[in-house]
Computed example of a mutant assay.
Amino acid sequence: MRVDLFDFDLPPELIALRPVRPRDAARMLVVRGADAPFEDRGVLDLPQLLEPGDVMVFNDTRVIPAQLEGRRGEARIGATLHKRVDLRRWQAFIRNAKRVREGDVLEFPADVSAIAEKRHEDGSFTLAFEGGEPVEVLLERAGRMPLPPYIAGKRETDEQDRKDYQTIFAREEGAVAAPTASLHFTQRLLDALDERGVIRTTLTLHVGAGTFLPVKAGDTADHRMHAEFGRIDAETAQLLNETRAKGGRIIAAGTTALRLLESAADEDGIIHPFEGDTAIFITPGYRFRGVDGLMTNFHLPKSTLFMLVSALMGLDRMQAAYAHAIAQGYRFYSYGDSSLLLP
Protein backbone atom coordinates (compact mmCIF):
# COMPACT_ATOMS: atom_id res chain seq x y z
CA MET A 1 0.00 0.00 0.00
CA ARG A 2 1.08 3.59 -0.54
CA VAL A 3 2.61 5.02 2.62
CA ASP A 4 1.01 8.44 2.05
CA LEU A 5 -2.40 6.87 2.66
CA PHE A 6 -1.46 6.78 6.35
CA ASP A 7 -0.69 10.48 6.60
CA PHE A 8 -2.65 13.04 8.64
CA ASP A 9 -2.11 16.54 9.99
CA LEU A 10 -1.53 16.89 13.72
CA PRO A 11 -1.41 20.30 15.44
CA PRO A 12 1.94 20.40 17.29
CA GLU A 13 0.28 21.63 20.48
CA LEU A 14 -1.40 18.20 20.82
CA ILE A 15 1.97 16.44 21.27
CA ALA A 16 2.20 15.67 25.00
CA LEU A 17 5.54 16.64 26.55
CA ARG A 18 4.65 15.37 30.04
CA PRO A 19 2.15 12.74 31.23
CA VAL A 20 -0.98 13.69 33.13
CA ARG A 21 -1.00 13.09 36.87
CA PRO A 22 -2.12 10.74 38.18
CA ARG A 23 -1.27 8.44 35.30
CA ASP A 24 -4.72 6.88 35.16
CA ALA A 25 -6.36 10.31 34.69
CA ALA A 26 -5.68 10.23 30.94
CA ARG A 27 -8.54 10.28 28.46
CA MET A 28 -9.37 7.24 26.36
CA LEU A 29 -11.15 7.10 22.99
CA VAL A 30 -13.13 3.88 22.52
CA VAL A 31 -13.33 2.73 18.91
CA ARG A 32 -15.57 -0.21 18.12
CA GLY A 33 -16.17 -1.95 14.83
CA ALA A 34 -18.53 -1.06 12.01
CA ASP A 35 -20.26 2.30 12.43
CA ALA A 36 -20.53 2.39 16.23
CA PRO A 37 -20.16 5.95 17.59
CA PHE A 38 -16.84 6.92 19.10
CA GLU A 39 -16.90 7.04 22.89
CA ASP A 40 -14.97 9.73 24.79
CA ARG A 41 -14.06 8.00 28.01
CA GLY A 42 -11.24 7.92 30.55
CA VAL A 43 -8.60 5.29 31.31
CA LEU A 44 -10.31 4.68 34.65
CA ASP A 45 -13.36 3.47 32.72
CA LEU A 46 -11.35 0.53 31.33
CA PRO A 47 -12.62 -2.15 33.77
CA GLN A 48 -16.25 -1.48 32.79
CA LEU A 49 -15.38 -1.64 29.10
CA LEU A 50 -14.01 -5.17 29.46
CA GLU A 51 -15.80 -8.35 30.46
CA PRO A 52 -15.07 -10.75 33.35
CA GLY A 53 -12.90 -13.50 31.94
CA ASP A 54 -11.10 -11.26 29.44
CA VAL A 55 -7.31 -11.20 29.79
CA MET A 56 -5.10 -8.15 29.42
CA VAL A 57 -1.53 -8.79 28.30
CA PHE A 58 1.15 -6.34 29.42
CA ASN A 59 4.78 -5.95 28.39
CA ASP A 60 7.09 -6.15 31.42
CA THR A 61 10.18 -4.80 29.67
CA ARG A 62 12.18 -2.15 31.54
CA VAL A 63 13.62 0.89 29.78
CA ILE A 64 17.34 1.40 30.24
CA PRO A 65 19.10 4.82 30.00
CA ALA A 66 20.25 4.03 26.50
CA GLN A 67 20.93 7.54 25.18
CA LEU A 68 24.62 8.49 25.32
CA GLU A 69 26.34 11.74 24.38
CA GLY A 70 30.08 11.69 23.75
CA ARG A 71 32.98 12.23 21.38
CA ARG A 72 35.12 10.50 18.80
CA GLY A 73 38.25 12.58 19.08
CA GLU A 74 37.11 16.17 18.61
CA ALA A 75 33.85 15.20 16.93
CA ARG A 76 30.66 15.24 19.02
CA ILE A 77 28.53 12.13 18.54
CA GLY A 78 25.39 10.64 20.05
CA ALA A 79 24.56 6.96 20.45
CA THR A 80 21.15 5.39 21.00
CA LEU A 81 21.39 1.71 21.87
CA HIS A 82 18.59 -0.28 20.32
CA LYS A 83 19.37 -4.01 20.46
CA ARG A 84 21.58 -6.12 22.69
CA VAL A 85 24.05 -8.37 20.86
CA ASP A 86 25.69 -10.01 23.90
CA LEU A 87 26.81 -9.08 27.42
CA ARG A 88 29.15 -6.29 26.27
CA ARG A 89 27.89 -5.43 22.80
CA TRP A 90 24.90 -3.39 21.68
CA GLN A 91 23.77 -2.30 18.25
CA ALA A 92 23.32 1.48 18.23
CA PHE A 93 22.19 4.30 15.99
CA ILE A 94 24.89 6.97 15.85
CA ARG A 95 24.32 10.68 15.40
CA ASN A 96 27.09 12.24 13.29
CA ALA A 97 27.97 8.72 12.14
CA LYS A 98 29.96 10.08 9.18
CA ARG A 99 32.68 10.98 11.69
CA VAL A 100 32.93 7.41 13.00
CA ARG A 101 34.93 4.57 11.46
CA GLU A 102 35.17 0.91 12.41
CA GLY A 103 37.70 0.54 15.21
CA ASP A 104 37.24 4.06 16.60
CA VAL A 105 36.95 4.51 20.36
CA LEU A 106 33.92 6.54 21.45
CA GLU A 107 34.33 8.39 24.75
CA PHE A 108 31.30 9.05 26.97
CA PRO A 109 30.98 10.74 30.38
CA ALA A 110 31.89 9.03 33.67
CA ASP A 111 34.82 7.09 32.17
CA VAL A 112 32.59 5.05 29.87
CA SER A 113 33.98 4.12 26.45
CA ALA A 114 33.09 1.77 23.60
CA ILE A 115 34.71 0.58 20.40
CA ALA A 116 32.78 1.04 17.16
CA GLU A 117 33.33 -2.53 16.01
CA LYS A 118 31.16 -2.85 12.92
CA ARG A 119 29.04 -0.62 10.71
CA HIS A 120 25.82 -2.17 9.44
CA GLU A 121 23.94 -1.59 6.19
CA ASP A 122 21.37 0.62 7.93
CA GLY A 123 24.13 2.92 9.20
CA SER A 124 24.05 1.66 12.78
CA PHE A 125 27.11 0.32 14.59
CA THR A 126 27.88 -2.54 16.93
CA LEU A 127 29.44 -0.96 20.02
CA ALA A 128 31.67 -3.05 22.31
CA PHE A 129 31.84 -1.46 25.77
CA GLU A 130 35.24 -1.48 27.42
CA GLY A 131 36.05 -2.47 31.00
CA GLY A 132 34.73 -5.14 33.31
CA GLU A 133 31.62 -3.50 34.76
CA PRO A 134 28.23 -4.68 33.46
CA VAL A 135 26.97 -2.48 30.64
CA GLU A 136 23.81 -1.77 32.67
CA VAL A 137 25.98 -0.20 35.39
CA LEU A 138 27.81 1.92 32.80
CA LEU A 139 24.52 3.14 31.35
CA GLU A 140 23.13 4.10 34.76
CA ARG A 141 26.25 6.23 35.21
CA ALA A 142 26.53 7.82 31.78
CA GLY A 143 23.21 7.41 29.99
CA ARG A 144 19.92 9.28 29.76
CA MET A 145 16.42 7.98 29.27
CA PRO A 146 15.90 7.69 25.50
CA LEU A 147 12.85 9.90 25.07
CA PRO A 148 11.25 9.84 21.62
CA PRO A 149 12.53 12.51 19.20
CA TYR A 150 9.22 14.40 19.24
CA ILE A 151 9.71 15.01 22.99
CA ALA A 152 13.50 15.21 23.23
CA GLY A 153 13.54 17.76 20.40
CA LYS A 154 11.34 20.13 22.40
CA ARG A 155 12.76 19.92 25.93
CA GLU A 156 15.64 18.48 27.95
CA THR A 157 15.42 15.01 29.43
CA ASP A 158 15.43 15.21 33.24
CA GLU A 159 15.33 13.03 36.34
CA GLN A 160 11.53 13.02 36.33
CA ASP A 161 11.62 11.13 33.04
CA ARG A 162 13.39 8.23 34.77
CA LYS A 163 10.11 7.69 36.63
CA ASP A 164 7.61 8.90 34.03
CA TYR A 165 9.03 6.83 31.15
CA GLN A 166 8.78 3.54 33.05
CA THR A 167 5.66 1.43 33.48
CA ILE A 168 4.33 -0.14 36.67
CA PHE A 169 5.12 -3.55 35.12
CA ALA A 170 8.79 -2.79 34.30
CA ARG A 171 10.94 -5.74 35.33
CA GLU A 172 13.07 -7.18 32.51
CA GLU A 173 15.82 -4.71 31.53
CA GLY A 174 16.49 -4.22 27.84
CA ALA A 175 14.07 -1.76 26.19
CA VAL A 176 15.13 1.57 24.75
CA ALA A 177 11.54 2.79 24.39
CA ALA A 178 8.64 2.35 26.79
CA PRO A 179 5.57 0.24 26.00
CA THR A 180 3.60 3.44 26.37
CA ALA A 181 0.06 2.04 26.61
CA SER A 182 1.03 0.71 30.03
CA LEU A 183 2.24 4.10 31.28
CA HIS A 184 -1.41 4.81 32.24
CA PHE A 185 -1.67 1.99 34.76
CA THR A 186 -1.67 2.54 38.52
CA GLN A 187 -2.31 0.19 41.40
CA ARG A 188 -5.86 1.47 41.82
CA LEU A 189 -6.60 0.71 38.16
CA LEU A 190 -5.11 -2.78 38.48
CA ASP A 191 -7.21 -3.36 41.60
CA ALA A 192 -10.33 -2.30 39.68
CA LEU A 193 -9.50 -4.72 36.86
CA ASP A 194 -9.05 -7.52 39.39
CA GLU A 195 -12.39 -6.69 41.02
CA ARG A 196 -14.06 -6.77 37.60
CA GLY A 197 -12.68 -10.27 36.99
CA VAL A 198 -10.27 -9.26 34.22
CA ILE A 199 -7.23 -11.55 34.16
CA ARG A 200 -3.74 -10.02 33.90
CA THR A 201 -0.55 -11.53 32.54
CA THR A 202 2.76 -10.36 31.08
CA LEU A 203 5.20 -11.10 28.28
CA THR A 204 8.50 -9.45 27.40
CA LEU A 205 9.36 -7.54 24.23
CA HIS A 206 12.44 -5.34 24.40
CA VAL A 207 11.32 -2.34 22.37
CA GLY A 208 14.04 -0.96 20.09
CA ALA A 209 14.73 2.56 18.86
CA GLY A 210 13.70 1.38 15.41
CA THR A 211 10.10 1.90 16.53
CA PHE A 212 10.65 5.65 15.99
CA LEU A 213 12.28 5.38 12.58
CA PRO A 214 10.19 6.96 9.81
CA VAL A 215 8.96 4.86 6.94
CA LYS A 216 11.06 6.22 4.09
CA ALA A 217 9.76 3.88 1.41
CA GLY A 218 6.90 5.00 -0.81
CA ASP A 219 5.18 1.64 -0.48
CA THR A 220 4.73 -0.51 2.62
CA ALA A 221 6.06 -3.53 0.71
CA ASP A 222 9.48 -1.89 0.57
CA HIS A 223 9.83 -1.10 4.29
CA ARG A 224 12.08 -3.28 6.45
CA MET A 225 11.31 -3.56 10.16
CA HIS A 226 14.06 -3.76 12.78
CA ALA A 227 14.06 -6.96 14.82
CA GLU A 228 13.28 -6.93 18.54
CA PHE A 229 13.77 -9.69 21.10
CA GLY A 230 10.70 -11.14 22.79
CA ARG A 231 9.66 -13.96 25.12
CA ILE A 232 6.36 -15.67 26.02
CA ASP A 233 6.70 -18.52 28.50
CA ALA A 234 4.72 -21.75 28.41
CA GLU A 235 2.58 -20.80 31.41
CA THR A 236 1.48 -17.54 29.80
CA ALA A 237 0.72 -19.24 26.48
CA GLN A 238 -1.41 -21.84 28.25
CA LEU A 239 -3.34 -19.14 30.16
CA LEU A 240 -4.10 -17.25 26.96
CA ASN A 241 -5.26 -20.34 25.11
CA GLU A 242 -7.45 -21.42 28.02
CA THR A 243 -8.96 -17.92 28.20
CA ARG A 244 -9.94 -18.10 24.54
CA ALA A 245 -11.34 -21.61 24.96
CA LYS A 246 -13.64 -20.31 27.72
CA GLY A 247 -14.91 -17.45 25.55
CA GLY A 248 -12.71 -14.70 26.96
CA ARG A 249 -10.94 -12.14 24.82
CA ILE A 250 -7.23 -11.38 24.63
CA ILE A 251 -6.70 -7.61 24.92
CA ALA A 252 -3.16 -6.43 24.25
CA ALA A 253 -1.92 -3.48 26.30
CA GLY A 254 0.09 -1.79 23.59
CA THR A 255 1.34 -2.55 20.11
CA THR A 256 4.48 -4.23 21.49
CA ALA A 257 2.42 -6.88 23.29
CA LEU A 258 0.23 -7.27 20.20
CA ARG A 259 3.18 -7.76 17.84
CA LEU A 260 4.66 -10.49 20.01
CA LEU A 261 1.31 -12.26 20.45
CA GLU A 262 0.81 -12.26 16.70
CA SER A 263 4.35 -13.57 16.22
CA ALA A 264 3.61 -16.46 18.59
CA ALA A 265 0.15 -17.38 17.24
CA ASP A 266 -0.36 -20.07 14.62
CA GLU A 267 -2.94 -20.10 11.82
CA ASP A 268 -5.59 -21.46 14.19
CA GLY A 269 -5.03 -18.73 16.78
CA ILE A 270 -3.18 -20.99 19.21
CA ILE A 271 -0.45 -19.07 21.01
CA HIS A 272 2.79 -20.95 21.50
CA PRO A 273 5.75 -20.25 23.80
CA PHE A 274 8.14 -17.90 22.01
CA GLU A 275 11.72 -16.78 22.53
CA GLY A 276 13.67 -14.95 19.86
CA ASP A 277 13.57 -12.00 17.49
CA THR A 278 10.48 -10.72 15.75
CA ALA A 279 10.35 -8.25 12.89
CA ILE A 280 6.63 -8.65 12.18
CA PHE A 281 5.18 -5.77 10.13
CA ILE A 282 1.39 -5.53 10.28
CA THR A 283 -0.47 -3.58 7.61
CA PRO A 284 -4.07 -3.59 6.32
CA GLY A 285 -4.98 -6.99 4.92
CA TYR A 286 -3.30 -8.83 7.79
CA ARG A 287 -5.47 -11.48 9.50
CA PHE A 288 -5.17 -11.19 13.28
CA ARG A 289 -4.84 -14.48 15.13
CA GLY A 290 -3.49 -13.71 18.60
CA VAL A 291 -5.54 -10.75 19.88
CA ASP A 292 -9.16 -9.61 20.08
CA GLY A 293 -8.57 -5.98 21.04
CA LEU A 294 -5.91 -3.39 21.72
CA MET A 295 -5.33 -0.54 24.15
CA THR A 296 -2.84 1.88 22.66
CA ASN A 297 -1.79 5.52 22.55
CA PHE A 298 -2.11 7.72 19.45
CA HIS A 299 0.64 7.21 16.88
CA LEU A 300 2.64 9.25 14.38
CA PRO A 301 1.48 9.87 10.79
CA LYS A 302 2.86 7.37 8.27
CA SER A 303 4.29 5.25 11.10
CA THR A 304 4.31 1.45 11.23
CA LEU A 305 2.14 1.69 14.36
CA PHE A 306 -0.58 3.73 12.67
CA MET A 307 -0.48 1.11 9.92
CA LEU A 308 -0.93 -1.59 12.58
CA VAL A 309 -4.03 0.01 14.16
CA SER A 310 -5.41 0.60 10.65
CA ALA A 311 -4.97 -3.11 9.96
CA LEU A 312 -6.93 -3.93 13.12
CA MET A 313 -9.84 -1.51 12.65
CA GLY A 314 -9.67 -0.46 8.99
CA LEU A 315 -7.86 2.53 7.52
CA ASP A 316 -10.99 4.65 6.99
CA ARG A 317 -12.14 3.89 10.53
CA MET A 318 -8.82 4.94 12.08
CA GLN A 319 -8.54 8.07 9.96
CA ALA A 320 -11.98 9.05 11.25
CA ALA A 321 -11.03 8.14 14.83
CA TYR A 322 -7.86 10.25 14.69
CA ALA A 323 -9.79 13.17 13.17
CA HIS A 324 -12.23 12.90 16.08
CA ALA A 325 -9.37 12.75 18.59
CA ILE A 326 -7.74 15.84 17.10
CA ALA A 327 -11.02 17.76 17.07
CA GLN A 328 -11.61 16.83 20.72
CA GLY A 329 -8.12 17.84 21.82
CA TYR A 330 -6.74 14.44 22.79
CA ARG A 331 -3.04 14.45 23.68
CA PHE A 332 -0.87 12.42 21.29
CA TYR A 333 2.13 10.07 21.41
CA SER A 334 4.11 8.50 24.26
CA TYR A 335 3.02 10.76 27.12
CA GLY A 336 -0.43 11.33 25.66
CA ASP A 337 -3.92 9.89 25.98
CA SER A 338 -5.07 6.38 25.12
CA SER A 339 -7.49 4.53 22.89
CA LEU A 340 -9.27 1.19 23.21
CA LEU A 341 -9.79 -0.58 19.90
CA LEU A 342 -12.41 -3.35 19.89
CA PRO A 343 -13.05 -4.76 16.37
Rank of each mutant, 00 (worst) to 15 (best):
K216I: 13
E228K: 02
E195C: 11
V215I: 13
I232R: 07
D219S: 14
E195Q: 15
V207L: 00
T201Q: 09
F185Q: 06
G197C: 08
G230L: 07
R188I: 10
L183A: 05
Q166S: 06
G208R: 01
D219V: 15
E172A: 07
A181E: 12
V176F: 01
D164E: 14
A221Q: 13
R196Q: 15
M225N: 13
E228Q: 09
D164S: 11
T167S: 01
G230A: 07
G218Y: 04
R231F: 10
E172M: 03
T204A: 05
G197K: 12
A175R: 00
R196V: 07
R200H: 13
A192N: 10
I168H: 05
H226L: 08
R231I: 12
V198A: 07
H223L: 06
T167V: 01
Q166M: 03
L190M: 12
Q166T: 06
R188K: 15
T186E: 11
R200M: 14
D164F: 00
A217T: 15
T180R: 01
G197F: 03
L193Y: 03
D191Q: 14
I199P: 02
G230K: 01
F169D: 05
A221I: 08
F185P: 03
I232C: 06
V176M: 09
R231T: 13
D191H: 09
D219F: 13
G210K: 07
T180Y: 01
H226A: 05
V198E: 05
T211N: 04
I232L: 13
K216E: 15
A175N: 05
Y165E: 13
E172G: 01
A192F: 00
V215P: 09
F185S: 09
G197S: 10
E173D: 14
L193N: 12
A177T: 05
M225L: 12
A192Y: 03
R224G: 09
E195W: 09
G218F: 03
A177D: 11
P179I: 04
L205W: 01
H226C: 04
T204W: 00
P179C: 08
E173Y: 02
L205I: 03
L213N: 14
V207G: 04
R196S: 07
G197M: 10
G218I: 09
R196H: 09
L190Y: 01
L193W: 03
I199S: 12
R200N: 13
